[in-house]
Design a protein around this nucleic acid. Sequence first.
DNA 1: CGCAGTTGTACATTGTATGCATACAATAGG
DNA 2: CCTATTGTATGCATACAATGTACAACTGCG
Lengths: 132, 132
Amino acid sequence: MANNPRTLRIDLASPRPVYEQIVSGLRAVLVAGEFEPGDQLPTVRQLAVDLGVHHNTVAESYRVLAEEGWLDLRRGRGAVVLDRRDPRPTTEAKQGFGRRLEELVAKAITDGVPRSALADQMAALAKKLGKT
Amino acid sequence: MANNPRTLRIDLASPRPVYEQIVSGLRAVLVAGEFEPGDQLPTVRQLAVDLGVHHNTVAESYRVLAEEGWLDLRRGRGAVVLDRRDPRPTTEAKQGFGRRLEELVAKAITDGVPRSALADQMAALAKKLGKT
DNA sequence: CGCAGTTGTACATTGTATGCATACAATAGG
DNA sequence: CCTATTGTATGCATACAATGTACAACTGCG
């Protein structure tokens, strides 16, 4: 059984739905390649205990990721990471990223994060993506 | 009275709350400097009609932006853009941006957007921020 | 083969949030 | 003043999030 991704943290006080935080966090972990195809994710009950939520909440998250093609879910067996092939991007997906990125930056600026720090982080991530 | 920001678009079909879409979109507009301090934003009722939602929904968005220090709200007078001073950033704000950025990228990759396209958009925005 | 344990799933319940309708309060401008 | 305009408050219908509980499918050991 694979370990629990340590980078996964959720905020129960956040207005953002917990199951969505789990989806978003796990998706980042999967994209980062922390798990190989064939690896087992924690069971819904195990991860639920670790995060302090109900197992149905985790199950809902796993279902979203399965729908996206990241996971194979089966009773008694658990959640297995799949060898995923990227779909064709819609124009909405491409434009959506740009808008969301601007909105994310605007929020950070509103929170007082210096623009230089934002530029640095984006440049660093862009560089990492380019190396692939 | 100032014009309506044309870049503001909302999606009633999205699971994302409409009032939050308005907040996020308007915040990006304000950060971009489309409005000067002292400018009037559309009235809650006017913007509500333009977007096809109830004026209370817009009012809720304006209240959030007022709380963030972007707007001054008064009955009979409308919403006036303030000369805002950036607050001290919390460590949570700084770390939060990095995590959210990774999650946003992961979602785009899941949707099939090429990594090169993501890197390009981030590099472009980083450059624009640096020039300020 | 059987059977106990494990794992994901289905469904009902409860609390909360979203968006709207409606009425109200404060201000502007004649 | 008085009326129109603007943001605000309250109550409601509805939908969603998270949970409690029971169930179905699969594993693995005897």
